[in-house]
Design a protein around this nucleic acid. Structure first.
Length: 862
RNA sequence: GGGCGCUUAGCUCAGUUGGUUAGAGCGCGUGCUUCACACGCACGAGGUCGAAGGUUCGAGUCCUUCAGCGCCCACCA
């Protein structure tokens, strides 16, 4: 064995990264049985820029668990995916190349993107657009892979997937068609949450509340002369609204059934201001008498409550907001737009048409004020408005045709699935249940976007040129994946696209979660690789962040429930967020400033992993470079202590010295505790306990055996020390290996064959087996001797420190007064203590209280 | 409004089923070039465990109430 003169961490990432790859240390062997395999449904990070420290944090957690199970002898199925599907990529491609997707264009195989960003944007077909997305994401994916490898993720890099890849598309489309056949996916025209900038539907799970400034406008509706006015006692009723521009879309007013103020109006009509539309006053329990004036305007549609009221009160639709967020043109007096004065309505409305909601609001306020319908000034407020999480303008609700997957009628079954799942930490299950219980509608999975998985269906066009959405033509299962915008349905010719009697492709793509929800099926080989699927599914682990329980976790459970009749995995491990040092969630912009690669280079991958491992499952953790420094120092300490432990270790004998035996038994206890904690996904505890053991091991044990292991007490004592040292080092390195893969591998290579990461996880048995005498009396004696030795060590160090004497001033003697049972331990440890402390001699005397007095310093000046 | 989590030394956090004087690291202070390590070593000073009640022989640990912080969810016109 040759030990390095000056061991260092620098360069270990490059050195071992290469060797691990050459030796295929993390290669998955699919010949193993299901029981021998530990499979992981890896979260595919979004490929739309760069990874940030939060990724490094949570992906390390997964790797810790993967490495533990690998060392326990399981074959770890640990692929890596890239989520390159979806809007973020589209936006990047549009800006990067200066192109725009036009799904109506045919594919141009000769298309080459412009060198310079083109203005105005060039229109390209969907397949061409997707090619550009793929080109751009491929570069990012290479950079991601480099970072993950440098961090030391023990992924099998021959198994990668992309959510826009062929296989992901095939799985998404097939799973969709199978749901369609079973009636679990359906299409309907209905009010849908809509982002006016992206011009796409969005799902409930993608909503975000944002505090937004607005204003209450108090607006009078006329109560027509006659019975209503007489019973109500007034000729107008005031509502308060933040969205006066929706008055033309008003279909009713609503108040609480018990609200005496408005009871006289229930069942009667009032007239909208400006437009003179007669709308009924309805009663509904959702109306809150405390809110505003207690009576609300129902519009189609201002918010989700409007949809509820509209549905439950069977109101008509009078929609004004279009898909681009502007007000549509309306011809007043036509069916559905009846007015008591159509000409007047038209005059007012023509000033609003084609304006955005915000501009129309300003305009209508002028009109209302001029006509006297606005009571007082608008009252500014801050209220919570729903946004698409990636959007910039408040969501609208527009009526459109969308695909849905049924969820509402399966809520009980989904709750039950949640209870079958092992959650780490357990309380995260509650969030899942809250979400499932709070669902208000089925899952809308269609998006009016381009870079996504297309719906594999076409529709017949009748002789009048109308698309028949009721009779979708599904693609054949064995032809998937297909793109209906370029491929032709069975029985049709290409020239029949878009013509009467021909066909039309479904123009939409699936929500990115409609693909991501199938990652367990995608990675495990469903449906073609039956063999792999049987060996890996359901996976053992789904690691993910807790903020996407409602999206990724929930939808994955749903899909597996439908497709496989089971959970997709057995365990879900939820990682927390990274917080700024001031304990706020680290913002994206801030997180991106600190590039992960720079962190890894500065603190070493082991150092950064050490910090990441300090974040317990589910716990939000502060970004703390100090912890990375501590981790780095630990790695350096391991190098140096190992060098010491292994030097001149050729003299070996049985472990017969009490101090050595006590250390070995204590380490056996650590191994048991670590194994149990790791099995419970409590990696943080393992690291903490091991680290704490290790420092005491260095400070006390290594000091105690220093002289003996150099042969000062003969071959027997030296052999015992060496045997204990190498055994302890071997075990400690293996427990540290999941956390600090580089430094442990480096030290392992000094004297062991093969990779530590394929070495067996240590057991208490392998340690205790080394002790020839493990009887109870011996154990007690060993432990007392060890504790006594460390007590003396501590006391002498303390007096030396207080004396502030340089080391060259010798300690001539140490006078020890203690019980005879304690003094009886002295012969066992005295030689070790003399060497460790450089004490010339110990003088003992029986007595009480116990005292340890260092001779040589007692008169020293302070 | 409902739910979950957190609150222990200046900072970041441990404290497993309630059991002797509450722990670690960082930071701080003092001293020491000791033959594995100055990217080091030794020693030290720091806390009435968010508040108030309660259960108990005994509570940081269990119960109740309250406060602050964070997060998730919800139909606030």
């Amino acid at each position: 064995m040759t030990l390095p003169e000056k061991p260092a961490l620098e360069g270990l990432e490059a050195k071992w990264g290469l060797r691990w790859e050459e030796a295929a240390v993390y290669r998955f062997d699919r010949a193993k049985t299901r029981a021998e395999i530990y499979s992981i449904d890896t979260p595919p990070p979004t490929v739309s820029g760069s990874l940030h420290v939060g990724h490094v944090f949570s992906y390390t957690h997964t790797d810790l668990v993967a490495r533990f199970h690998r060392m326990r002898g399981q074959e770890v199925f640990y692929p890596m995916g890239w989520d390159d599907n979806g809007l973020p990529t589209e936006r990047r491609v549009q800006n990067y190349y200066g192109v725009r997707c036009d799904p109506s264009l045919p594919y141009d195989p000769a298309f080459v993107p412009p060198e310079q960003q083109s203005k105005p944007p060039i229109s390209v077909s969907r397949p061409n657009f997707i090619e550009l997305c793929a080109r751009l994401t491929a570069e990012d994916e290479k950079a991601f892979e480099r970072l993950w490898k440098y961090l030391g993720l023990s992924v099998d890099w021959s198994m990668t997937y992309a959510t826009i890849g062929r296989r992901s598309q095939q799985v998404s489309q097939l799973a969709f068609l199978r749901l369609l056949r079973r009636g679990l996916a359906y299409q309907v025209e209905a009010p849908t949450l809509w982002d006016v900038d992206f011009r796409t539907a969005v799902a409930q799970a993608e909503l975000e509340d944002r505090e937004t400034p607005g204003a209450f406008h108090k607006i009078a509706f006329r109560v027509p002369d006659g019975g209503a006015a007489r019973d109500f006692g007034r000729s107008s009723v005031e509502i308060e609204t933040t969205r006066p521009e929706l008055i033309p879309a008003c279909v009713a007013l609503v108040a609480h059934p018990d609200d005496a103020r408005y009871k006289p109006l229930f069942g009667r009509d009032v007239e909208t201001p400006l437009f003179g539309v007669r709308v009924p006053v309805k009663a509904h329990a959702l109306a809150d008498p405390e809110k505003g004036s207690g009576i609300a305007m129902i519009c189609t549609f201002g918010d989700i409550t409007d949809v509820t009221w509209w549905r439950e009160l069977s109101l008509p639709i009078r929609a004004v907001i279009q898909m681009d967020g502007t007000l549509r043109r309306v011809s007043w007096g036509s069916p559905g737009w009846e007015s008591t004065d159509p000409d007047r309505a038209q005059r007012f409305y023509d000033d609003l048409a084609r304006l955005s909601a915000a501009k129309a609001r300003a305009k209508i306020v002028e009109q209302l004020r001029a006509s006297g319908s606005l009571q007082g000034d608008p009252r500014p407020i801050t209220h919570v408005v729903k946004f698409y999480e990636k959007g910039d303008r408040p969501l609208e609700i527009v009526s459109s045709r969308q695909w849905f997957i049924k969820t509402m009628e399966f809520r009980d079954a989904l709750i039950e699935r949640g209870r079958e799942l092992q959650w780490h930490p357990a309380y995260m299950r509650i969030r899942y249940e809250n979400w499932v219980n709070g669902l208000t509608g089925d899952w809308c999975i269609s998006r009016q976007r381009f870079f996504g998985v297309p719906f594999p269906v076409w529709y017949p066009i009748d002789d009048l040129g109308r698309i028949d959405h009721a009779r979708p033509i599904p693609a054949a299962d064995d032809r998937l994946p297909i793109d209906p915008s370029t491929e032709v349905p069975p029985g049709y010719r290409p020239d029949q696209r878009g013509v009467p009697g021909g066909f039309a492709g479904d123009p939409d793509v699936m929500d990115t979660w409609a693909t991501s929800s199938l990652t367990p099926q995608i990675v495990c080989g469903w449906p073609d690789d039956v063999d792999l699927f049987a060996r890996t599914f359901p996976t053992d682990l789904r690691p993910q962040a807790h903020d996407i329980i409602r999206t990724w976790l929930f939808t994955s459970v749903l899909r597996a429930h439908f497709e496989n009749g089971s959970l997709p995995w057995r365990n879900a491990a939820l990682s927390g967020f990274i917080l700024d040092p001031d304990r706020k969630k680290m913002s994206k912009s801030k997180g991106n400033v600190i590039t992960p690669m720079a962190l890894l280079e500065e603190h070493g991958s082991d150092g950064v992993r050490y910090w990441a491992a300090s974040g317990r499952p589910g716990a939000d953790t502060a970004f703390d470079t100090n912890q990375m420094r501590v981790g780095r120092r630990l790695a350096i300490k391991i190098l140096n202590a190992s060098k010491f432990a292994l030097s001149s270790s050729d003299v070996k004998a049985a472990i017969t010295v009490p101090v050595d035996r006590a250390m070995i038994r204590s380490l056996a206890g650590l191994v048991d505790e670590s194994t149990g904690a790791f099995e419970e996904y409590d990696y943080t505890r393992v690291l903490q306990r091991t680290e704490s053991f290790f420092w005491r091991f260095c400070d006390d044990y290594l000091e105690l055996v220093k002289g003996r292991r150099y042969g000062e007490q003969g071959a027997q004592g030296q052999g015992s020390a060496n045997a204990a040292l190498t055994a302890a080092l071997s075990v400690l390195l293996r427990v540290f290996a999941p956390f600090l893969p580089y430094v442990t591998e480096e030290v392992w290579s000094w004297w062991q064959e093969g990779s530590i990461h394929r070495a067996a996880w240590p057991t208490a048995t392998e340690l205790v087996r080394l002790l020839e005498d493990n009887s109870e009396p011996t154990r007690q004696l060993d432990e007392r001797a060890y504790r006594w030795a460390t007590d003396v060590l501590f006391e002498v160090r303390k007096q030396r420190s207080e004396a502030k004497q340089p080391l060259k001033v010798p300690i001539t003697g140490v006078a020890v007064t203690a019980h005879d049972t304690t003094l009886a331990l002295m012969p066992i440890v005295e030689a070790d203590l003399r060497a460790a402390l450089r004490v010339q001699k110990f003088e003992t005397a029986v007595g009480d209280p116990q005292a340890i007095i260092v001779r040589g310093y007692e008169g020293a000046s302070q």
